[in-house]
Structure formats: C-alpha cells, structure tokens
C-alpha cells in the first residue's frame, strides 16, 4: 500500500467552465484522480475532450473566460483549490512544472535559451547566475543537446522543433520539480525524435522520482509509458485503470471503440476495415444528461438516460457505465 505522503497530486471533483457566446461550456466535468511519486498517469482522449483544460486548471493557467472549481486540488498534501496567486507562483516553475505541446508558447522569442533557463532557477532557488548556468548546461546535456554551453547564447528560432522541445524539457526540470505535467509533448515531432524524447522523459522521471501527468491522444505512447491511464470523453474521465488492465480488458464502450480504431500490425488485417465510432462528440454547452457517450454507443439502452454509476474492480480499474462488462 502506498504511503499517503507519496501522493503528489490529488484531484477531487475538478470542473472547468468556460463562458462562450452560446452559453457556459462545461469543458471539464467533475473529474478526480491522483498521482504518486515516481508514477506516470496518462490522460488520453480525442481533441476537445478537456485534456488541456485539466492541465491548465492544475497549473492555474486557465484562460480568462474559464473558471475552475474543485472539492480538493492538492499538491504534496497542500490544498491549492483556494490558494492565492503568490502561493501558486512560488510553486509553479519550481516544485511543479509543465511542458507544452508547442514549445514556442513557453519560450520567449526575445530572450536567449540561456536567459530563460537561468531566470526561474535564480528566482526560486535564490541561486547565483553562475550556479544556474552550470545547472542549465548539465540539464541540456541530459536532454541530449551537444555543446550545451554554446546553445545558451542562441534564440529559440535558431533551433529546430526537436531541439526546442528538448530545451523545454530541460527548462521544466531546472528547479527539480516533484510534479511534471506534459501536454502532448511530442505530437509535433517525427517518430524517431518522439521515441528519443519520450525515452528521455521516462528515464529522467524514474531517476528523479517525479510524478508525471502525460497528456496525449496517442494510444501507442500511453501503452508504452503509463503506469495508469485515465480515458477522457466529453469532459469526464470515463475509465481509469492500470495500463495493462486497461489495454487488455477495456471496460468502457468508448475505450473499446478507440482501441479498435487504430491499425495494429498483427491484429488488424492489412487493407481491411478498421473499427469506427459513429457520430460526433456532444455539445458541452449546457447540461449533459445521462451518459455522454450515449448517442454513439452501440450498447446504449433506456437506462443510459440517467447518469451511469462508477464501477470498480479490486485492482483499481474504474469505469462509468451501466454495464459490468460491455465486451
């Protein structure tokens, strides 16, 4: 049994609402999960299901039109759901940090790589610039950037996409975070570089005992890197469980559908038909009644008009469906 002090991030009942011209959009709807020291949780789901809003809510970086609420949003045992700006600022970029999908959203084009790596470290760790530079060079080396000292003087636009992503990983690790949130960190990259960067992230995460939330829409990445997986659909977590159990015995019809959609050598017949999930995601504006997957679910029945129960097995595999086993 894990010691409760091992829990780095604990989220209970997080919701994010966004004011839009058409009404309130419920981007994240009452989700709960926790991540332990040294553990990787993958949040997986298709575009618009609320993955980024979840990560931005945790980091307190939501856009102005969005508001969050939570019964509890605790980092290292401290409830931050009602914490003030200064407390969050002291933690963010320090004990908890984030890697964005598009590195240019996090890197300032007007400053050198060196300035950006050094700044947060000097601020949070009260370190001298020389110490900060030394750490920056060390970490750039770790993320596989050759002649790191030289790179410190370069501007973001002088680096390739793969290099920028590595710089961002180094930046996220500068202050030795306990929690790392990576939102689609390799989606924009080539497969060879993607594999290299994920391997690097996984190694560093293990070595440093970081609790990591990795957000992706790619089930291949999930299978290879996650300890546990949470599947999001229309703002809710519809299934969550240990990686092996989730892939080998998915319980929720949406998870089952997603797995059937992807071509897998050996499982799908070359040139044959792939599984499909008919229909489209429901609008998240206004109230969503009953099971949000209902319109697309081949197993839907009358009872699905009410909110489905959360079911759970002994190994901590949970899903939100009226069916015990939809397979």
């Amino acid at each position: 049994m894990a010691n409760s002090s091992d829990i780095v991030l604990e989220i209970d009942g997080l919701s994010v609402d966004i004011r839009t011209a058409g009404g309130t959009l419920h981007a994240v709807r009452d989700i709960s999960f926790s991540v332990k020291r040294g553990e990787t949780l993958c949040l997986v789901g298709e575009s618009g299901c609320g993955k980024s809003m979840t990560s931005l809510a945790i980091m307190d970086l939501l856009p102005k039109a969005a508001t969050k609420s939570a019964r509890r949003l605790a980092f290292a045992g401290e409830d931050l759901s009602r914490a003030g700006k200064s407390r969050i600022n002291a933690l963010r970029g320090n004990r908890m940090s984030m890697i964005f999908q598009e590195p240019m959203t996090a890197l300032n084009p007007a400053y050198t790589i060196g300035n950006q790596l050094v700044e947060a470290y000097c601020l949070h760790k009260k370190a001298s610039e020389a110490e900060a530079r030394e750490r920056a060079v060390f970490l750039l080396g770790k993320v596989g950037i050759a002649n790191a000292a030289e790179r410190l003087g370069q501007y973001p636009h002088q680096l390739s996409g793969g290099l920028r992503q590595r710089v961002m990983i180094a930046m996220a690790l500068m202050c030795g975070p306990e929690l790392l949130i990576a939102d689609e960190p390799t989606t924009a990259l080539d497969v060879t570089i993607q594999a290299q960067i994920l391997r690097l992230l996984a190694d560093l995460q293990q070595e440093l005992g970081i609790a990591m939330v990795l957000i992706t829409h790619d089930l291949g990445i999930v299978a290879r890197i996650a300890d546990r997986v949470a599947v999001m659909y229309a703002g809710q977590i519809v299934e969550e469980g240990p990686t092996t159990s989730l892939f080998n015995a998915p319980r929720h019809p949406y998870t089952q559908g997603l797995i059937e959609c992807i071509p897998v050598p050996g499982r799908t017949e070359p040139g044959g038909r792939l599984g499909v999930i008919p229909g489209v995601v429901p609008s998240l504006v206004g109230e969503v009644r009953g099971c949000s997957f209902r319109d697309r679910c081949t197993k839907a029945q009358q009872a699905c008009l009410d909110a489905p129960p959360v079911r759970e097995t002994a190994d901590g595999h949970r899903w939100r469906c009226i069916l015990e086993n939809a397979a």
């Binding site: 596989g144 950037i145 050759a146 390739s160 793969g162 290099l163 497969v191 060879t192 570089i193 993607q194 594999a195 290299q196 994920l198 391997r199 996984a202 790619d218 089930l219 291949g220 990445i221 999930v222 299978a223 290879r224 890197i225 990686t243 092996t244 892939f247 080998n248 797995i259 992807i262 897998v264 050598p265």
Partner: peptide
C-alpha cells in the same frame, strides 16, 4: 530499421524503444 524501431504500438509493457540513432539531426 530505426524508423520501424520508433513505432509505438499499443502494447503495454514493452517500454520506449531505443532507436540507436545519434542526436545529430
């Protein structure tokens, strides 16, 4: 070979492969 080694099939337990490629893009 390196390209194929980089493919992440959805098979849990296999981990992230080492492509054997240098980093010199």
């Amino acid at each position: 070979k390196a390209l194929l080694a980089s493919v992440l099939t959805p098979e849990p337990g296999l981990g992230i492969p080492d492509t054997g490629l240098g980093i010199a893009f």
